[in-house]
Simulated assay, not measured.
Amino acid sequence: MNAVPTVTLNNGVQIPQLGFGVYQIEPAATVAATLVALETGYRHIDTAEMYGNEKEVGQAVRESGLAREDVFVTSKLNNGYHAHNDALKAFDRTLDDLRFDYLDLFLIHWPMPAVGDFVDTWRALEEIYRSGRVKAIGVSNFQPDHLRRLLAETEVAPAVNQIEIHPYFPQDELRAFDAGHRIATEAWSPIAQGKVLDDPTLTDIARRLNRTTAQVTLRWHLQRNDIVFPKSVTRSRVEENFALFDFELTEADMAAITALGRGDRTGPDPDTFNYLP
């Protein structure tokens, strides 16, 4: 089994740098896929109420035979529950669905600036954090202006900011802001939903290293110190995405991949996205 490095969050909590994402995995397939990931060696699972598969993630963790404390599980507050009391109830619902006594990391999924005051939502997460039922709290899809408000108006700094990052959208400015405020950066859509897999720069590096383009892309994320969680329901892909720790990219490789950035998002713009489920 490859040893997955950990990142120390700003409150001292250790999070595995490589995890398994369950976004867009149907509930009926989630238990089996998550069990494959845990059997492969993943010890970090990223889910959300919005994904509709929290119950299945909890079931897989229990069926795996692993101790609860050996699996780092993240979930996220759904967009319709930003009001303070709604956020508290949503967290309770997440714990109930997972059938856990505590959660490792809980995030505000989107800032939703036109829908409500995410600062008040954050204060609800601070309350949950102080209760001891979550080890760390953070945000997802927050821009620097959103983060500045939280840092200025609340007491607990976010431990994590989970944002879209891939070679076509490297997010260097936002990553630098996070790092400057001791906020760990997590990368969602790490291979741009497959759009980067045929890129000539990546395929050339992959051919030279006898690796797949996905492995090269995920290794790029790891060497940039991003926390990343690829998703697949295919055992061979799950195993392939885990085989990242016996090779390295050169500085020239890293620079060439970062230079592919062209501002291409695969998901919504957090400044304008206000979707209510």
Rank of each mutant, 00 (worst) to 15 (best):
L98M: 15
A243S: 12
V196T: 14
G132F: 02
N210F: 11
N241K: 09
Y81I: 01
R237F: 06
A67R: 14
I108F: 14
E251S: 13
H166E: 04
V228T: 14
S232F: 12
D246N: 11
E39G: 06
F142A: 05
D253W: 14
D70W: 01
G65T: 12
P167H: 05
F91D: 00
V216I: 13
V71A: 06
A29R: 02
L218V: 14
I45Y: 07
V119K: 02
E164L: 07
T185W: 06
R99V: 15
M112P: 04
P167N: 04
S189M: 01
V196M: 12
F177M: 07
V228W: 09
R133K: 10
V196R: 06
G21A: 10
S64N: 05
V57R: 03
E240L: 02
A136S: 13
S189V: 01
L77S: 07
Y42S: 09
V115A: 09
T213S: 15
G12F: 03
P270M: 05
T258M: 04
A187N: 01
Q59T: 15
P277Q: 01
N85H: 12
E155Y: 11
D120G: 10
R235Y: 11
P200G: 00
N85C: 03
W188P: 03
L125S: 04
A252M: 11
A124S: 15
P5H: 10
N10R: 14
I128H: 08
N274I: 01
E186G: 00
R262T: 07
K231C: 01
V134Y: 09
H181T: 06
P200M: 00
G41M: 12
R211P: 06
D204N: 08
L38T: 01
P167A: 05
T6P: 05
T272I: 09
R99N: 15
F91R: 00
V22R: 08
E127G: 08
V233H: 00
D178S: 11
T121G: 11
L88P: 09
E69L: 00
A259M: 06
P5L: 11
A176M: 05
L218W: 15
P5R: 10
N78G: 08
T258F: 04
Y129F: 03
D178K: 07
G52S: 07
L209C: 07
K89E: 05
L95N: 06
A187L: 03
A159N: 09
A159R: 08
V31Q: 00
E153K: 13
E251D: 14
E56F: 12
P167Q: 05
D97S: 12
A136M: 08
T212L: 02
T266F: 03
R182H: 14
Y23E: 08
Y129S: 00
P144N: 05
G261T: 09
T154Y: 13
R130N: 00
T30I: 07
P190S: 05
I108E: 12
V156K: 14
H82N: 04
R237E: 07
R123K: 11
K89Y: 02
L95C: 06
R265K: 12
F247M: 13
A159V: 08
M1Q: 10
Y275G: 00
T201V: 09
A33S: 13
F106S: 04
A83F: 10
D70Y: 01
P167F: 05
